[in-house]
Computed example of a mutant assay.
Amino acid sequence: MAGTVARMVAYLKARIDLGTLKPGNQLPPTSALMKQFEISDNAVYRGIALLKAEGYVVSRQGAGVFVADRRRLIVGEKRVQGITQAGETIHHKRSERVQAPGWVAEFLGEGECVNRVRTVAREDDVVQSSQSWVHLAVADVVPEIDEPRACDPTWQALYQDRSGNPVKVSSKTADVRTTTDEEREDFGLSSDREVLVVRSVYVTGNTVIGVGEAAYAPGHPLTLS
């Protein structure tokens, strides 16, 4: 069964990459995919979730699943130096010291860290709602992370410049989940929606100094590069 789902996903990816299915085109209905690949409806849904996680498609409530208009996610050195693209602006919402959530503590260790929350807007639309959790050791070098404003260009770049220790993105993972209350408010949504979420881990040497989670607004998916 898994192999059949993989073939469905590979087939749809190939059609999208080759341009046979273009941005805005609707995918075949579930019933057609079930028949073509001889799989169940749940298997089709799993395949579609994989395509969403990679930014290939996006759901429109009550309308169906459509090929996404994709652009590349800024990662690596470019992400450390500044993540916005032309026409985008950052709104820093808050910085506060909190106890590290469970999944964050797996990287930073248990205890207090600095939680920074912001949005990225393109014109009047919020396209990204993101948070970072930063190790307190960074605050000794970049005290600005405790202030309710954006760092220029990023806290990672400031730490790298001031400490002399290179900062890199050691890993990134993508997933699909439903929106949180804050994300629905940021994106102007009236109900739960599925969103692409990317988590990044920032390291200097072998030491994790921060983790980030970015949720991307429906209709503005990104391709992981």
Rank of each mutant, 00 (worst) to 15 (best):
M1Q: 04
T4L: 15
R7S: 14
M8I: 04
M8T: 04
A10I: 05
L12T: 08
L12G: 05
K13P: 07
R15S: 08
I16A: 10
I16M: 10
L18W: 11
G19D: 09
G19T: 10
L21N: 06
K22Y: 06
K22A: 13
G24P: 07
N25I: 02
P29L: 11
S31Y: 01
A32I: 08
N42K: 11
N42Q: 11
N42V: 12
A43D: 09
V44A: 03
G47E: 04
A49I: 11
A49N: 11
L50W: 05
L51S: 07
V57K: 03
Q61K: 11
Q61L: 12
A63E: 14
F66Y: 12
V67F: 11
A68G: 06
D69R: 13
D69Q: 13
R70H: 04
L73M: 09
L73A: 03
G76P: 07
E77K: 15
E77I: 10
K78V: 00
R79Y: 13
V80I: 15
Q85V: 12
G87Q: 03
H91W: 05
K93R: 13
K93M: 15
R94W: 01
E96R: 14
V98L: 08
Q99H: 10
P101E: 09
G109I: 01
G109T: 01
G111K: 02
E112L: 12
E112M: 12
C113D: 01
V114W: 05
V114K: 01
V117P: 02
V117E: 13
V117Q: 12
R118F: 15
R118P: 01
A121Q: 14
D124W: 08
V126I: 15
S129K: 07
S130D: 09
S130W: 00
Q131G: 06
W133E: 02
A137Q: 12
V141G: 05
V142M: 03
V142I: 09
I145D: 08
E147L: 15
C151S: 15
P153A: 09
P153L: 08
P153T: 09
T154D: 02
L158N: 06
Y159R: 07
Q160K: 03
Q160R: 06
N165I: 03
P166K: 07
V167L: 06
V167M: 06
V169H: 04
S171A: 15
K172L: 14
T173G: 07
R177T: 11
R177Y: 02
T178P: 03
E182A: 14
E182M: 06
E182S: 11
D186C: 11
F187W: 13
F187L: 07
F187R: 10
G188F: 05
S190T: 13
S190G: 13
R193Y: 09
R199A: 10
R199I: 01
S200C: 01
V201G: 10
Y202L: 14
V203R: 12
T204P: 10
V208P: 05
G212P: 10
G212E: 15
E213G: 04
A214S: 12
A215D: 00
A215R: 00
A217F: 10
P218M: 01
P218T: 00
G219D: 02
T223P: 00
